[in-house]
């Protein structure tokens, strides 16, 4: 797809990080290896490496987000970059400024990287297509399309617990239809070669033609969880009940909420993941969320290392080493 070539420079290196789709396995593994090298930085007394010193990263959030924005901010700071947080939904666009004009303004401030969160699918692609050539764009979530750093931190977490992707059976459970996380996870898992990807949910929340992405569809959670190594839960938005997609949160929990009984159907060493923030008692039972099989909090801390890796790679540091050197 031409849509993905835009992510690579003329040497095939990562220039923008917009979607997992179209990136090859070695590139994804390279991101994970780099993230591994950065993962120790947060444990040090001085939590910084000088890789992006003198660079300016702009967080362009056209849609509110706390978690993703904060981890990108921390990642940039640990790489010694200057960071600019722009909550654009409440400023420029309301004054009628076009997206392109906003970009030109930020380019004039000599930013080097844009992290973009936008409510519309394709927004990060659009920005990458139109920014000045020296600027890298990282997709922090666009519409229902993609959330590639979330998917990579999930892959990172899986690799920490499981040896070989190719032997894994993974189930993604919940609102696949509206989920950019699910789409990116599916692309990442299939590129890394897992043996089976299952999506589990009611027909109203599973998009038609999803099987063209190479997944198996289950509407019965008990069947879908059998022999599964990794369980990836998705967040359920309250508005789904209002738009005739689901009758009630409690019925959803009954059918698709992850309880201890249902968890027991998966492999005994299965891990439970969730992109957060979790709705206890709607998609996941508290006991499961807090159990030893849950890796939800690890995902959060891995998010910083993975975002550091992606930022370093897109800025041309292909052999990023989080050495002990001269951190400032």
């Amino acid at each position: 797809m031409t849509g993905n070539n835009i992510q690579l420079d003329e040497h095939g290196r990562l220039k923008h990080f917009l979607t997992i789709e179209g990136l090859d396995r070695s590139l994804l593994l390279n991101i994970l290896d780099n993230a591994e090298s950065f993962s120790g930085v947060g444990d040090r007394a001085i939590k910084k490496v000088p890789i992006l010193r003198g660079k300016t990263v702009a967080n362009l959030f056209f849609e509110p987000s706390t978690r993703t924005r904060t981890t990108f901010e921390l990642a940039a700071k640990r790489l010694s970059a200057d960071i600019l947080n722009l909550n654009i939904s409440s400023s420029a666009t309301k004054k009628g400024e076009s997206l392109l004009d906003t970009l030109r303004t930020l380019e004039a401030m000599h930013c080097d990287m844009f992290v973009v969160r936008h409510a519309n699918s394709g927004a990060a692609h659009f920005i990458a297509k139109h920014v000045a050539p020296h600027i890298s764009v990282i997709n922090g979530g666009d519409g229902r399309h993609a959330h590639p750093t979330q998917a990579m931190l999930d892959m990172f977490t899986i690799r920490r617990h499981k040896q070989d992707f190719r032997e894994l059976r993974v189930a993604i459970i919940g609102d696949i239809l509206h989920s950019r996380v699910a789409r990116s996870e599916i692309h990442a898992l299939s590129t890394l070669g897992v043996s089976e990807i299952r999506v589990i949910g009611p027909r109203t929340l599973i998009p038609r033609h999803v099987e063209t992405l190479g997944v198996h569809v289950y509407h019965n959670m008990s069947e879908g969880l059998k022999e599964v190594d990794v369980i990836m839960m998705l967040r359920l938005q309250q508005e789904r009940m209002r738009s005739a997609l689901l009758p009630s949160a409690s019925e959803y929990f009954q059918l698709y909420g992850l309880t201890e009984e249902k968890l027991a159907l998966a492999k005994t060493d299965a891990i439970v993941m969730h992109p957060g923030p979790i709705n206890r008692g709607i998609e996941i039972d508290s006991k499961v969320a807090d159990s030893s099989q849950s890796v939800i909090l690890q995902q959060v801390s891995h998010g910083i290392a993975v975002r550091m890796a992606v930022m370093a790679l897109t800025m041309g540091h292909s052999d990023a080493r989080a050495g002990d050197g001269d951190a400032d």
Binding site: S121, G122, G143, H145, R180, R183, P207, R208, T212, L213
Partner: peptide, 15 residues
């Protein structure tokens, strides 16, 4: 169109 691209691109589909 609600089809292979709406599911891939995450754009709302029209059946």
């Amino acid at each position: 169109h609600e089809g292979i691209m709406s599911v891939r691109l995450g754009l709302p589909g029209i059946p």
